[in-house]
Amino acid sequence: METSKVYHIGAAASLMVLIAWLLAWEMVVAPLKPGGSLLALKVVPLLLPLRGVLKRDVYTLQWSSMLILLYFAEGVVRGYSDRDEISRMMGYGEVALVCIYFACALLFLHPYKKAARKLARELLDKVNRATHE
Rank of each mutant, 00 (worst) to 15 (best):
22 L>P: 05
56 R>T: 10
67 L>M: 14
57 D>H: 11
45 P>L: 10
36 G>Y: 06
28 V>P: 02
71 Y>H: 06
31 P>Q: 00
61 L>T: 09
19 I>L: 03
63 W>R: 08
30 A>T: 10
40 A>E: 08
37 S>A: 00
51 R>T: 13
45 P>Q: 02
43 V>M: 02
48 L>Q: 12
68 I>S: 04
70 L>G: 13
68 I>K: 05
48 L>A: 15
23 L>P: 03
28 V>Q: 07
27 M>E: 09
62 Q>C: 04
21 W>E: 06
64 S>N: 01
28 V>F: 15
30 A>D: 07
48 L>P: 08
24 A>K: 00
48 L>R: 05
40 A>C: 14
27 M>R: 14
42 K>R: 11
31 P>I: 05
20 A>I: 12
46 L>V: 09
42 K>H: 13
68 I>R: 05
38 L>V: 13
35 G>H: 10
57 D>K: 13
59 Y>E: 11
53 V>S: 01
29 V>P: 01
36 G>P: 04
35 G>C: 04
53 V>Y: 03
68 I>L: 02
31 P>M: 02
50 L>W: 09
63 W>S: 04
46 L>F: 13
68 I>P: 06
23 L>W: 12
64 S>L: 01
36 G>W: 02
48 L>Y: 14
66 M>P: 00
33 K>F: 06
68 I>D: 05
59 Y>N: 07
38 L>C: 08
39 L>F: 15
68 I>Y: 11
61 L>I: 05
48 L>F: 15
38 L>F: 10
35 G>D: 13
58 V>F: 14
35 G>Q: 06
42 K>V: 04
63 W>P: 02
71 Y>F: 12
69 L>T: 15
19 I>G: 06
45 P>R: 07
38 L>N: 11
39 L>K: 09
69 L>S: 07
45 P>Y: 08
67 L>R: 03
55 K>W: 07
65 S>H: 14
39 L>H: 09
44 V>N: 08
70 L>Q: 06
27 M>V: 11
70 L>E: 05
19 I>P: 06
42 K>T: 12
71 Y>P: 10
71 Y>M: 08
61 L>N: 09
39 L>V: 01
47 L>Q: 03
64 S>K: 01
30 A>M: 02
63 W>E: 00
47 L>D: 12
46 L>N: 02
20 A>M: 12
52 G>E: 06
40 A>T: 14
33 K>M: 10
20 A>C: 09
54 L>K: 04
57 D>N: 15
25 W>L: 01
48 L>G: 03
51 R>W: 15
57 D>Q: 12
27 M>D: 03
57 D>R: 08
30 A>E: 01
